[in-house]
Design a binder for these strands. Structure first.
Length: 589
RNA sequence: GGGGGUGUAGCUCAGCUGGUAAGAGCGCUGGCCUGUCAAGCCAGAGGUCGCGGGUUCGAGCCCCGUCACUCCCGCCA
């Protein structure tokens, strides 16, 4: 909370209440709005704490009245005067300070201002590039400020909750080394080592593991992370993680600890979590929601109707089932009367997402069945379908016949899309764990195994024997925290056995020598008394974004980049001088 | 890298099928106004229609290119 200590003020603007009536106060801030009645002048003075109305009367304000007549929007001023109750009938119930006003006796202009490029108070949505170019003006807008106040409270709460649980904050390097895999690194040329580069951290992953080997036991850091990838509404090239690591824990210990911390943090946003949080395995999440970060604020679960069509004469279904695939679908309540064109657009979305096609059956509100494929179904199959989806008049059933993974993924996409289009109510903060991710995932393009999470993730103890023989079957001690369909955080238990680490790296294509070259320092650390450990990293920006009800991560970052990675305010990135290039041994085309 | 959307006054936008002199609200400037709180009333200033090229008798509008912003796919262990 802003207060008036250590300043030229006696009070902050938003704090004045009837109890201050009769007091002489000094307030300072920006001229939010001026209402000049020729005689009487009202100025709304704004500071971070809020607004207060200041009154200038030509009969009593003296020289201050002249100031009131010359000031303009966003001038910086200090007013001294008397707080009084507003006259009968002039109370403003929309303002926290609306019962009182400051009758100004003396006024000082601390700084003038040009006409701002956009109105500070305007509720009108202003072009974002302009807002970012003048972010310092944008930040003055109460509704913009709000998100940063929330961010601060959440950050402080994380610190407090973690400190209370024995975590200590340790800083890790920003200038690190580039590691293979993962996102593209931002690189920094080294002046002292010609031709060599630092990399900015994608996360403090390896350092926090080394801190565990170092006996820190419980670490956290509010860590800036850097990834040189394309931007999105919820992705910036630099972002902040609440980074956590602890030793001597089992997965359940860690999840329980995090749930307690999250509960305390969410309280700052007035959100109550029901503990323990729901847990879905990765397999279950994919099967029921077609997503590893399902939005549980609405139903529309995926239904497997393979059993209905075991003897289907419909070639598309028969072929899919014959080759080990599935027929699955969702029932979209209220889309049964959609136009052919609108449904065709869904079909196109399904094709774009990798499906061979979309089989749909519309049950119109008048009781008819519309479908380009129903003619291939027997009466029993149609009845079975209707029952499986509990389809009523007005429902639209969308089905995909394909390999299980494809069907799940496409339906997961359609499920979210239909919820949006049907404007299903999506209230609250549906928070859950998704656990037990596969250790590896197959990269079909590169024809090799990739780490699903990262190469240091610990396989299930009883799956260790499968690492080489059946990598795709190996599950891992891993967990993502999901809120409203967004991945808010994720973590794993780590490998603390150097031999297991070598075997995993080997599957990932890092042979003995390569592993030593790239990760030798980690392997050595694991062989020098590494305790079992694990951790998690939470995306602070995304969390605040969701809790603040914002649609872009940019709304919770003070000076974010545009989607081309530029800063409209400072002009970064920009060229550097020939001298600077020479210093770091770089030539630019 | 690919697809969609947007770009007209300081801000938010309208501008029909290509046709007279490019408009509104807010803001800004000046004037009037002693209880407003998005104050009110009167007057005024303010435009490279993102940029470049083309089609046309004529382009804010059509075509080509380009830039910026934005959303999505790819990418993001």
């Amino acid at each position: 909370m802003l207060d008036a200590r250590y300043s030229i003020r006696s009070h902050v603007a938003g704090s004045l209440r009837p109890e201050h009536a009769g007091q002489t106060v000094t307030v300072a801030g920006w001229v939010h709005r001026r209402r000049d009645h020729g005689g009487l002048v009202f100025i709304d003075l704004r500071d971070r704490s809020g607004l207060v109305q200041c009154v200038f009367d030509p009969d009593t304000s003296g020289p201050a009245f002249v100031v009131a007549e010359e000031v303009r929007s966003e001038w910086v001023v200090a007013f001294t005067g008397t707080v009084r109750m507003r006259p009968e009938g002039t109370v403003n119930p929309d303002l926290a300070t609306g019962q009182v006003e400051v009758v100004v006796a003396s006024a000082e202009v601390l700084n003038t201002s040009g006409t701002p490029p956009f109105e500070v108070d305007s509720a009108i949505e202003t072009d974002e590039a302009l807002r970012l170019k003048y972010r310092y003006i944008d930040l003055r807008r109460p509704e913009v400020l709000e998100a940063f106040v929330l961010r601060d409270r959440i950050t402080q709460r994380f610190r407090k909750s973690l400190e209370h649980r024995g975590f200590m904050e340790v800083e890790t390097p920003i200038l690190g080394r580039s590691t293979p895999e993962g996102a593209r690194d931002f690189i920094v040329p080294s002046r002292l080592s010609p031709g060599a580069f630092y990399a900015l951290p994608q996360s403090p992953q390896l350092f926090k593991q080394l801190l565990m080997v170092g006996g820190i036991e419980r670490y956290y850091q509010i860590a800036r992370c850097f990834r040189d990838e394309d931007l999105r509404a919820d992705r910036q090239p630099e972002f902040t993680q609440i980074d956590i690591e602890m030793s001597f824990v089992r997965q359940d210990d860690l999840l329980q600890m995090m749930e307690e911390v999250m509960d305390e943090v969410m309280h700052e946003a007035g959100v109550h979590l029901d503990l323990p949080l729901a847990r879905l395995t990765y397999a279950e999440a994919m099967d029921r929601y077609g997503s590893d970060r399902p939005d549980l604020r609405f139903g529309m679960e995926l239904t497997d109707v393979s059993g209905v069509f075991t003897a289907s004469q419909f070639k598309v279904f028969a072929d899919a089932l014959g080759s080990g695939g599935v027929v699955k679908g969702i029932a979209a309540r209220g889309a049964g009367d959609w136009s052919r064109g609108r449904i065709d657009a869904l079909n196109q979305d399904a094709l774009d997402a990798g499906a061979k096609g979309l089989a749909w059956v519309a049950f119109t509100s008048t009781g008819e069945v519309r479908s380009p494929v129903a003619k291939f179904f027997t009466a029993d199959e149609l009845a079975g379908l209707r029952e499986a989806f509990a389809a009523e008049p007005g429902d639209l059933v969308l089905m995909i016949a394909d390999a299980r993974e494809v069907a799940n993924e496409v339906l997961g996409m359609l499920r979210v899309k239909m919820a949006e289009e049907l404007e299903l109510p999506r209230e609250g903060f549906a928070t859950l764990w998704v656990v037990d991710f596969p250790l590896f995932k197959w990269d079909a393009e590169e024809k090799r195994w990739d780490a699903n999470h990262h190469p240091f993730t610990r396989p299930f103890d009883d799956h260790l024997g499968l690492i080489e023989s059946d990598p795709g079957a190996v599950l891992s001690y891993s967990y993502d925290l999901v809120m409203n369909g967004l991945e808010i955080g994720g973590g794993t238990l780590r490998i603390h056995d150097v031999e297991v680490q070598r075997r995993v790296l080997s599957v990932l294509g890092h042979g003995e020598q390569d592993a030593t070259d790239q990760f030798g320092f980690l392997l050595e650390a694991l062989s020098l008394g590494a305790p079992p450990h694990g951790g998690i990293a939470l995306g602070l920006d995304r969390l605040v974004m969701v809790l603040a009800g914002k649609h872009s991560i940019r709304d919770v970052i003070a000076f974010p980049k545009t989607s081309s990675g530029a800063c409209p305010l400072t002009g970064a990135p920009d060229t550097v001088s020939a001298r600077q290039l020479r210093d770091v041994h770089l030539k630019v085309d």
